[in-house]
Design a protein around this nucleic acid. Structure first.
Length: 382
RNA sequence: GUGGGUAUGGCGUAGUUGGCUAACGCGCCAGAUUGUGGUUCUGGAGACCGUGGGUUCGAGUCCCACUAUCCACC
């Protein structure tokens, strides 16, 4: 299980907040970090690998399920793996497909071996379990593979969640064992591939804690908290993090899956989270909802038609350094692809830069102060 | 000047043989979206139907005049 090319250094703490540094075969990740979501190997909205470099992206997140059903992981392996294929040479994390599978599958189709469901592309029958997910992720050769888990609905009954979490634990053991085999096979794309386990348990703190203890014993490369931001309140999410994260190893990266708003991220960092990812910056960008250091800008609104200021006068991103609100608005209205690209670039830079500010604050030992200031600034009206 | 056509929310239009709180698209405004089933979804505001008369129980729909505008002709 040990991996000499992989380290997590805990550089500094403030309360439970962690400032860390992850070293992988694909480069260093300064944490806390926001991973940029590139589901099918590219950020939606037309961003290239070069664009990601220009907005200080550290980690690209790709999706096992999507790459499996379209193009296919065997072909990507044949072409040299996901890094060579996309030309993104930095760290890549692949989601296991668990989340998609459970949004596509009926609950009764879940069995001990795995899940059968229909492809959203052509309706083809697909079966995916721990071994299948690991095989796909090994073919892709990502830096970090995620365990195949079940993400129960937020409103699931407690006895359902208990059974589900027990199965997720058994699946985790199978994931670990299968990935170890795959990494040692001749011609493995990434023999140094890392595996993160995923904590589940919905909003039941006792289940979460038992599960966290159980998977912490497995000495995995990192630990995610999954199954949050799926319909529960923010208070419930923060409560679960308060209760659960202390039982995950402090000397390993922690990852809050699918979260979230800038506010969610500040609260997550405060509770000991290192990794985040979310579709918000890219999706909101495509919809013309832009983040600034002083509230959000709905760039499609008429009041920006003759506004020659940048999207955010305090932002140093390539978009704000050059283009005006009026022009960006015009591009969206005219359905020019460049409009989407600029909006998504700005929003991802905003998130990446937010994480840089958070790391700077942790380095300086004033995260608490920074968080208070930032939450107020984010709540401002434009 | 003559003949013909058209006048409906900011814009473009639908309104059946006159019949319930005048519809739609765009635009505008406001929400939603959290390990992406790829320019999304939901809601809201806004029109005394060019003006003035007339017919009728009832007119955006029919009649008259006026005004504006378009086309053709002189």
């Amino acid at each position: 299980m040990s991996n000499n090319d992989y380290t997590y250094e805990l550089l500094k703490t403030e309360g439970r907040a962690k400032r860390g540094r992850v070293t992988t075969v694909h480069g260093v990740i300064e944490t806390p970090v926001f991973m940029n979501v590139a589901t099918a190997g590219a950020i939606k909205g037309g961003l290239s690998a070069e664009d990601l470099e220009s907005i200080d992206t550290q980690v690209m997140l790709c999706n096992t399920y999507h790459l499996h059903v379209r193009t296919g992981d065997p072909l990507i392996k044949k072409l040299g793996g996901l890094h060579k294929f996309t030309t993104w040479s930095g760290p890549i994390l692949t989601d296991s497909g668990g989340f998609q599978v459970f949004s596509l599958a009926e609950l009764r189709k879940i069995k001990e071996e795995g899940v059968s469901f229909h492809s959203h592309i052509d309706g083809a029958n697909i079966f995916m379990g721990p071994e299948e997910s690991m095989q796909i992720q090994a073919n892709l050769g990502s830096t970090i593979a995620m365990a195949f888990d079940e993400c129960p609905p937020a409103l699931a009954e407690k006895d359902y969640v208990e059974n589900s979490v027990a199965r997720t634990t058994r699946w985790l053991i199978r994931c670990r064992d299968r990935l170890e085999q795959l990494k040692q096979e001749e011609g493995a794309v990434n023999p140094h591939q890392l595996l993160f386990g995923i904590n589940q348990g919905a909003v039941y703190a006792d289940i979460r804690i038992d599960h966290a203890k159980r998977i912490a014993e497995m000495d995995l490369d990192g630990y995610a908290v999954g199954g949050l931001a799926v319909g529960e309140t923010h208070e419930q999410m923060y409560y679960i993090l308060d209760e659960t994260v202390p039982y995950l190893p402090q000397n390993k990266p922690t990852y809050l899956m699918g979260v979230g708003t800038p506010q969610n991220i500040l609260e997550g960092v405060d509770r000991g989270i290192d990794f985040f990812d979310c579709v918000y910056p890219s999706r909101n960008g495509r919809h013309g909802n832009l983040y600034t250091n002083h509230g959000t800008v709905r760039i499609r609104n008429a009041k920006y038609a003759d506004d020659m200021r940048p999207i955010d006068e305090t932002c140093g991103c390539p978009v704000c350094r050059r283009y005006s609100r009026a022009y960006v608005r015009h591009l969206l209205k005219a359905e020019e692809a460049l409009g989407l690209r600029l909006c998504v670039m700005h929003n991802l830079y905003f998130y990446n830069h937010l994480m840089q500010e958070i790391r700077d604050a942790l380095d300086a030992g004033n995260f608490a102060q920074y968080k208070k200031y930032k939450l107020e600034a984010l709540a401002e009206e434009q």
